[in-house]
Design a binder for these strands. Sequence first.
DNA 1: CCAAAAGTGTTTCCTTTACACCCATGC
DNA 2: GCATGGGTGTAAAGGAAACACTTTTGG
Lengths: 266, 266
Amino acid sequence: MAPGVTYDYDPHDYPPFAVTVDVAVFTIRDDALQVLLIERGNEPYLGAWALPGGFVKIDEDLEQAAARELAEETGLRAGSWHLEQLGTYGAPGRDPRMRVVSVAYWAICAEVPVVRGGGDAAAAALTPVEEIERGRVRLAFDHERIVRDAVERTRSKLEYTALAAKFCPPEFTIGQLRRVYEAVWNTRLDPGNFQRNVQESGAFEKRIEATSAPPAGSAPPARRGRPASLWSVSESTVLDDRPAMPLERPPAKRRRAARRKPTKDE
Amino acid sequence: MAPGVTYDYDPHDYPPFAVTVDVAVFTIRDDALQVLLIERGNEPYLGAWALPGGFVKIDEDLEQAAARELAEETGLRAGSWHLEQLGTYGAPGRDPRMRVVSVAYWAICAEVPVVRGGGDAAAAALTPVEEIERGRVRLAFDHERIVRDAVERTRSKLEYTALAAKFCPPEFTIGQLRRVYEAVWNTRLDPGNFQRNVQESGAFEKRIEATSAPPAGSAPPARRGRPASLWSVSESTVLDDRPAMPLERPPAKRRRAARRKPTKDE
DNA sequence: CCAAAAGTGTTTCCTTTACACCCATGC
DNA sequence: GCATGGGTGTAAAGGAAACACTTTTGG
């Protein structure tokens, strides 16, 4: 549909809506799940924190609009993220100016370069989702609801897909991947069992055998301990889709503290 | 937001969209999952099959609009269904007349009285989803995509919630509930194991102990065999939410044909 | 009587869990 | 050496699947 097209409908029957997209961009930082927020530079809610977003253009696809907002706010280039529709929020009165229907998206990025306000954002910052879940951050519009829904959806999807890999660089160690799950559910997983599960899931494949060679390039800098092999998502894996991950179910039964080795006289 | 409100935005910056809802209404009929379709009485796609739907009113909530369409098309009264948002479909050009963003919903009804065309529907009919999955029915707009997504979502939700009960009357036998799963996945489940799973899930509770009394009222008419107890969803069960159903996972491993009883000399 | 549906009992098998333990590195 | 993270082995516990069997009805 080209710009300049004329509409042949009667506005009385077909009321005009403004359509926006809002994007919840997640990343792992400081071993915690964080979401990108911007400080609003315009009314309403001037000065409040909100999700990045904006109006959909008349000839623009919805996901395209979300990707555009995401790129504007982070400076990242297309394809370096996973972007998916979350749901649509359109209660009358959610925006005091006009009737707005907002299509919410959520995204996973391995890292989010926080850009100083692009567009109408006064500032941008990564915020731990735990802050929001505890109600310690006041968000504009119904964005708290959107963030809560997005977090739930993210956790849900990580349980049965290989999407966790999108929180990591293209090649990663199994330990890095484990730390994603540990951050998202704020829990601890058994490294040995996790190792096996990743290997046997078929969703990942080993790229670089562990070597003593200096891990150059984009590989994670060795810190300590035995060098790890680097893995990536298998060619055939559809990130987005089930069934991928028979990993340890992170949120289900919380792991008990390690038990002492039983004494001989037991 | 009251009718007659004036908008303070510039249509150049905030282009006007038409917003519609489309509803995929599912029910079980003839032991098969079926979806309600209407035959379009207007252009475009005059005469084609489509999902029930229509324009959202300017002061109407999205779910309210979906419920209104559902009630108009089925004659059912509010509350007798489960209605949930599916996703939003808004590619430019999906409607040749104008730029439309459609918020799709899906619903479960225990039974769907097929009403002759309400509104702009020439006719209405239940159609087995298998017909659509096999591409044997041509649908208007992008409604085939919506139906496929809705079916997938329905199957997914039945796996981990107690929503299957919404395909049954308020009180139902465990056998009725099993037949829902069997219809939705077109499979056979072990009656004994299913029985136990329902009882132990905690999501349901027994209402009426099996009796020889004539099953009057809305109770299902006894057909054959031993009378069954009637069950309903437990007070505390949140239908919509996990975790409810550790039932047999219907689509996963397909059940093998029953094996013969091993002979003694085996 | 037989067929069919409801409901219970039981065995077998497979997966998950909770570790123990060895390996390779930095300090 | 010692702490730390990578990676493998394994025994025990728990749960799912298969199916025999009993109960109660209609025809």
